[in-house]
């Protein structure tokens, strides 16, 4: 019974915290821009308003299914990631499973956007997939570093070992943490890697035809995606969290770092981003692997 209860409560927490983080991002960015910015809870209002709209126009079945697949994929990933004291499906090899499942959400959005028939959306999707190809390599290097260091593929066991040893992984294998953080910038779509949604180039790319409740669902997908990826970082490198409060605070620190970089960086071109990811983070990741082996 408690398990079923948790299955309902975890996504709600994730969506609420994810949306709150989106609001914090807007506020922090606004302060850097010397603006006031919207209230922190603005994304809640936006999402609720969008979800109450009726749909007048559609671009096909995939267009409608895309956001749903995105949310489903993100939820599935979420269940395998321990969040504070909630560890729903914890088992051996779940870290590798999370790597696979994490892509499903983005692919769902890519499918939906590709069906909308707008060339801007199509270019955005192709850019998004190329970006995924770029950051997956350093990301996998960083995760392999963690797996080798702690000699397990279970996220719960990794957290346990960090807590018992008293040293978070970010202090033990700092290079892997750095590589993961650089990859995280691309996963979250923050600058300098917000290439798939570049407004000045392709008019915000994949979302260009979305509106109404589908856009609301995409907003929820964005918040879930944000929460999932940040939670994975906190679990792997910052020793998880005793409860949801400390866990979210750790996530907020990681997220704020991403937001600050986002506010002061121009955007890479796609070829530059690819070269960057396969050069510096890859080299750092390999060096980290060598250190782990020694």
């Amino acid at each position: 019974m408690l398990f079923l209860y948790n299955i309902i409560i975890v996504p709600i927490i994730a969506i609420l915290i994810g949306l709150l983080f989106l609001g914090i991002a807007r506020k922090v960015t606004a302060r850097i821009h010397r603006r006031y910015g919207p209230p922190v809870i603005q994304p809640y209002f936006d999402t609720l308003k969008l979800l109450t709209k009726e749909d007048n126009i559609t671009h096909g079945v995939m267009y409608m299914l895309g956001p749903a697949i995105g949310i489903a994929g993100s939820l599935l990933t979420l269940f395998f990631i321990p969040i504070g004291k909630y560890a729903l499906f914890s088992m051996h090899g779940d870290l590798i499973l999370v790597l696979y499942l994490g892509v499903i959400g983005s692919l769902g959005m890519a499918l939906g956007a590709g069906d909308s028939g707008n060339p801007n959306a199509a270019i955005g999707v192709s850019r998004g997939l190329s970006l995924m190809l770029s950051y997956e390599f350093p990301l996998v290097l960083a995760i392999v570093g963690v797996i080798l260091k702690y000699n397990t593929t279970s996220i719960s066991a990794i957290i346990q070992k960090q807590v018992t040893s008293g040293w978070w992984a970010i202090f033990v294998i700092p290079l892997s943490a750095l590589v993961f953080d650089i990859a995280l910038q691309g996963i979250l779509g923050e600058k300098p890697f917000d290439i798939p949604i570049a407004p000045h180039e392709i008019n915000s790319g994949p979302m260009v035809e979305y509106g109404g409740k589908y856009l609301g669902m995409l907003q929820i997908f964005a918040s879930l995606h944000l929460f999932t990826e940040l939670a994975l970082f906190v679990d792997l490198f910052l020793g998880g969290g005793a409860n949801i409060i400390t866990f979210s605070l750790k996530m907020l620190v990681v997220f704020l770092l991403a937001i600050f970089i986002n506010a002061i960086m121009p955007r890479f071109r796609m070829d530059q981003a690819f070269k960057f990811y396969w050069k510096w983070p890859a080299i750092l990741g390999l060096i980290s692997l060598i250190f782990v082996f020694i």
Partner: peptide, 16 residues
């Protein structure tokens, strides 16, 4: 120009 390369802080600063 800064906006076109994705640096949205500069447009906000210069316009103000």
């Amino acid at each position: 120009h800064a906006g076109s390369i994705g640096l949205y802080t500069i447009p906000n600063w210069t316009i103000s």
